[in-house]
Design a protein around this nucleic acid. Structure first.
Lengths: 244, 244
DNA sequence: CGTCTGCTTGAGCCTTGTCAAGAAACGTGG
DNA sequence: CCACGTTTCTTGACAAGGCTCAAGCAGACG
């Protein structure tokens, strides 16, 4: 994977020109390894860098002042990290690595140049931020209006789908690279209750577990329980500016 | 208010050129009144229009299949509506009017032209969608990790601040143009519990109520209870492309 | 004047959280 | 490769925050 990860993700949706591809490669000229557990950007600290995740799994979260944590998003290869931080003087969220990762850092000026020189790429950045926004609203509805079991089911389906986007070999078995506490912090539950819900899903034959690996046994039932919609599908992009 | 509402909002953050101002006015050439209670766009229906809200109060929401509703966002004059719908074939959320409103509809091509011809405006659309994103993550954290009382306090502070953005005369008294059921659907609570929390905030002398009007008596205490951050402040925009 | 929607309040229940303790898995240094 | 410490998982007992159901009331509107 020598070129641009972001370009690879975009290629799923539109045919990139050579010029566009080169512009994207410029964002990923540099590379930086990030150890598991390391923090790339801390909430409320000054932030001058954006990143594209090249490999590994990361998350973004906020801490509330009672010490509790809300995980906002899991980040996968090809995702652009910290766009929202680019807009603020201080980062609104923390970025941390859940596994050993590689990121490509770039600065705001590079983003600005890329958007000015390539209107269609600018539009694609907007498209991606809207996909992310809609995924966030799905989670908002999940936390506000669905049961613990539904939230867990939804998280499992989403993780599998996102993992499959970069690794087509993944079918219905995957490594849940998260502790139950992390699952809880993502779904607004306690680790203890996550454990109970996982066991319950297992008893109902919707999933199986052995040693960190999860198998989705009955996707249909999970989907029904979870109200899940894959937001990377059903897009409409024929209105995009002409490439140039 | 003859010009562009969106331009007025943007003027708070950057100095627009005449050219840019005219480009924005083009988006708001047309106007359409929307009655209180009317639906502008329905979830899962094909949508080909975007809008800028010129006056009134709207909301976006989703319905889950048990019939419950999650309000995703309240929309104020100057807000761009349905950007996320522009990206999908079918609208991911419903847009409905909470009061009599006026909107300016435009199509995807107009957005595309505007972004292509005016890179700085394209960047500002991205900036706005990031502000909205961060506001959404605040609410996600609120639903996931804070008490009912904190969520209500946060909603009250946010509503007041957003109202004040368009009407500077508003200080700490404002008309809560929402039923308690709507407050509940926004905060992930039942109408009954919203009522209890409002009364509790009242008993604790944080707010006062009489006939649909709310007075914030102790903003400090509310802010502490709510963990509230105004996301329209603390921006960093010096990296934007040069105007032209 | 009647109807309808929204507000208020109480009683009881249920989902989820808290606390605690033991078991299992993992990582690290010797 | 083993021994140890630490993290994570698991399970039970109990508590509590928020939900459900129900009923009365107030105000808006035709």
């Amino acid at each position: 994977m020598s070129g641009s990860c972001f370009a690879e993700v975009l290629s799923e949706l539109i045919d990139l020109t050579e010029v566009e591809r080169r512009a994207l490669e410029k964002l990923e000229e540099r590379q930086r390894p990030v150890r598991r557990g390391a923090v790339l950007q801390r909430e409320n600290e000054v932030c001058n860098e954006l990143f594209i995740l090249r490999s590994g799994l990361m998350m973004s979260y906020v801490l509330l002042d009672d010490g509790s944590r809300q995980i906002l998003r899991f980040l996968f290869p090809g995702d652009m990290l910290a766009i929202s931080s680019a807009v603020y003087r201080e980062a609104p969220e923390t970025l941390a690595a859940l596994s050993d990762c590689v990121v490509s850092p770039f600065d705001r000026a590079a983003l600005s140049e890329m958007m000015t020189g390539h209107p269609r790429l600018a539009a694609m950045v907007l498209v991606y931020s809207q996909i992310e926004r809609v995924a966030l609203t799905d989670r908002l509805a999940a936390l506000g209006r669905t049961s613990a079991k539904a939230r867990i089911a939804s998280l499992l389906l989403d993780l599998r789908n996102r993992l499959r986007a970069t690794d087509k070999s993944i079918s219905n078995v995957f490594v849940l690279g998260l502790t139950q506490e992390e699952v809880g912090d993502a779904t607004g539950l306690t680790a203890v209750h996550v454990n109970r819900m996982l066991r319950q899903l297992e008893e109902e034959k919707m999933i199986a577990r052995e040693g960190g690996r999860v198998t989705l046994l009955d996707e249909r039932a999970l989907g029904r329980a979870a109200n899940y919609v894959n937001r990377y599908e059903g897009l409409s992009l024929n209105w995009l500016p002409r490439q140039h």
